[in-house]
Design a protein around this nucleic acid. Sequence first.
DNA 1: GTTTGCTTTTATGCATACAAAAAACCGGGA
DNA 2: TCCCGGTTTTTTGTATGCATAAAAGCAAAC
Lengths: 211, 211
Amino acid sequence: MISIADQVFEELERDILSGVYERDEILTEMKLSEQLHVSRTPIREALRRLEQEHIIEPTSKGMKVVGINREDISDICEIRLRLEGLAARWAAERANEAGIRSLRETLDLQEFYTQKQDPDSIKNADSQFHQTIYALCGSHSMQDTLEPLHRKLLKYRRVSVSTQSRAQKSLDEHRAIYEAIAAHDGEKAEKLTIAHVQNARDSILKRVIMQ
Amino acid sequence: MISIADQVFEELERDILSGVYERDEILTEMKLSEQLHVSRTPIREALRRLEQEHIIEPTSKGMKVVGINREDISDICEIRLRLEGLAARWAAERANEAGIRSLRETLDLQEFYTQKQDPDSIKNADSQFHQTIYALCGSHSMQDTLEPLHRKLLKYRRVSVSTQSRAQKSLDEHRAIYEAIAAHDGEKAEKLTIAHVQNARDSILKRVIMQ
DNA sequence: GTTTGCTTTTATGCATACAAAAAACCGGGA
DNA sequence: TCCCGGTTTTTTGTATGCATAAAAGCAAAC
């Protein structure tokens, strides 16, 4: 069962990172409590988690929306560049057949939506592919590290896959990574993933500049 | 002002990672509330953070202490190996004079305690050196990523620096890293830090095996 | 007109009350 | 003796109350 606090967290995180709440906007427990029709307790809990992720920060008037800026994105990409390859390697070395099958399923999903050219669903499937790798890599520390970073790129990944060429390329790269993991070829999975994250970074940063 | 919830979190994290609470022990909000003489609210908040770090996990009877195992340590070292160098590089490139001075101060502290051969204080100064670099690297994402990983090694770092030779070597390595950062030589800072983390890993893992 | 000091408002931190879900317990019947 | 039914206990999730700290507002004095 997913608690109200979790739901509030997910909703607020999504809305902050996607721009529903804009930078410097003040969020107070009381106001959110009224808006979302829940008591302050689960709101507090959600705000605390957002504060730990540094996408809001406390002020005397309430929590100020910070979100992420261009430097954050660049830094996050740089960090992912150093870790995602290792995560894929571990997934290749450690995942069992059931895990590989579930990775396959996210790939099929992404293929389907890429053909339908549905950017929002593509973005979700794309995310799910990466998050499944985090889950399969067999390290909570790795998963805990990469997941929040990945979520922070949400909005920009959406923009990135909204061009058909990038969406298709991303799918192809995922397919190759999947094959390497399914073959338990850690070396190859790592190399392919690094190249993939590099491409994703270039695609994201190119579009961020344009804004 | 540091809140009660924060204090409870720090105390519980320390006690779990240093073995005061042992693996599989059950922690309930009510019991902790009585033991620590605070209400359930700040206890809950602390437990949530510990749960997010995966050092406790929910069961129907309460939160079960998980702590970290040998594989976790190895994985964390591997992750640090890929990130700490980058953090040092960024610190070298981005830190201002005040920041470099504060790094210098932690180094002096470590030197003092190393001469006094006080393992617990050495460990703290050693930690502080790394955490200062995280703070100076100018990236919240990097800081948020490395700090929890670093804290998880607490107990093992303590063991590691309790031999005088390792303590001295660590100090020398820190000094070299400091010089590189102070000279804004990112390349060198990164290279030296990677070597340092490698040594720290070897030192930690050697002792973990012996347990 | 400005400043100082008091009052009011606002927002959070902690305590506590209540409800629901799940596990443990217990007693009677086969 | 073992199992099955309902009851009690345990534990958490959420709501709410209360205290405190800080900011804003306000009025009187200079």
